[in-house]
Design a protein around this nucleic acid. Structure first.
Lengths: 212, 212
DNA sequence: TATTGACACGAACATGTGTTCTCTCCTATC
DNA sequence: GATAGGAGAGAACACATGTTCGTGTCAATA
């Protein structure tokens, strides 16, 4: 791809910057004024060049019809996943339905690279305590789950153990009429429990940790 | 907050939908046509009502100057952080300058909840091997770093140990003329090394793990 | 019944905004 | 020097788009 001229690069940067400030693209005359270009035709000329090189898309006749090619498609697929509660060993985990339209104050974002398939039915929980330390999930981490009641063998799922009254995050294997729950850390021993005792809450999709 | 009329709700929905399809807001006449409203003034009337109730923001005299209040501010702050390489114990980590304008194929997204302060100077690396397992960072995880050459005591940083020719992720404490590198896992012993031997590559900002 | 206010209509008006045409300036090339 | 092409200037044109004004309908209320 041929290099952009200094002016074309400046225009591209300005469009990006403008989009950060406002929620709509700039007009040709916005660009003209900002970059002190003498004529709208010059802006149009360079915009056409940018379009030919695939940096932007233009919608003719439509005011502010400039779209940034990478950003738009990339950004659109980012989903904001609500952190709807906490997950701790000794208590049931909240499920999305519990908190209908409640005041979710925190979200974690995930892009297409982190999400295989659709971003539907996702929710997140903040981990309390170190009960999942064997899966390298620390106190304070946020786990992202996909809501589902069943799973395939080998998937890591959040399960509620009825008898033990305990939540845990383990790899799930159905073996006959019992279930083997395998910790991520291979040095630890698996748990065996009757299939009736486990209730799948969701499949583990991701972990997000942030340091202050 | 007073309820919206059916028409106002429909307009709000349409604006949202339009923004998903295109990358610019609709015009008054777009709304008029879509919802089969007889006059632009009716749209204008209802838009004013929506603005008074805080659902949208309008920029007078500016075409397509409609912004959705909740969405815009939330979504705009998501930054896409490029995964520019790998980090392994025995090799220097790449720094952003190394790969100027290269073909970064993967990114991780982080929102304002995960990022304190500005999202500038961020880059990400995929962890190879289990050298950082003491910090609960597994093989395959992506670590997000903020580029900096200095740090405060107690911050977790990626450092290059010159003599050992090794990269490690530890809490940093300058004690006199030597440096104590403290593993996140408190059961492990700290490393002591001369200050000249350590080269700070960046501060650990976050960890993102995703399961297939 | 008369009044008021929310909501809607249609038509104009004024400006915002993309597009296009003609020139000019400069540089590279023969 | 002549020529061609990239880049830009300036102005005008045509249409897109926000704004406003006068009017009409309907339900609630005094």
């Amino acid at each position: 791809m041929k290099d952009l001229s200094r002016r074309q690069q400046a225009i591209l940067d300005y469009i990006e910057h403008f989009l950060d400030e406002n929620d709509y693209p700039p007009t040709i005359r916005d660009i003209q004024t900002e970059l002190a270009i003498s004529s709208t035709s010059v802006v149009d000329y360079n915009l056409k060049a940018l379009e030919n090189r695939g940096h932007i898309r233009r919608n003719s006749k439509i005011s502010r019809g400039i779209e940034l090619v990478n950003r738009s498609s990339g950004r659109r697929n980012v989903v904001a996943i609500p952190v709807i509660g906490q997950i701790a060993a000794g208590s049931p985990i909240p499920v999305p339905g519990d908190l209908e339209g409640s005041d979710v104050t925190e979200t974690v974002e995930m892009g297409p690279d982190q999400l295989r398939g659709s971003g539907q039915g996702l929710f997140a929980l903040r981990v309390k305590g170190q009960s999942m330390i064997d899966a390298f999930i620390d106190d304070g981490d946020v786990v992202v789950l996909k809501q589902q009641e069943t799973c395939e063998n080998g998937e890591t799922v959040a399960v509620w153990l009825k008898d033990e009254r305990e939540t845990t995050l383990k790899k799930f294997y159905l073996e006959g009429d019992r279930v083997r729950l395998q910790p991520a850390n291979s040095t630890m021993q698996p748990i065996y429990t009757p299939a009736e005792n486990v209730e799948i809450q969701g499949r583990l999709v991701g972990v997000v940790r942030s340091y202050a």
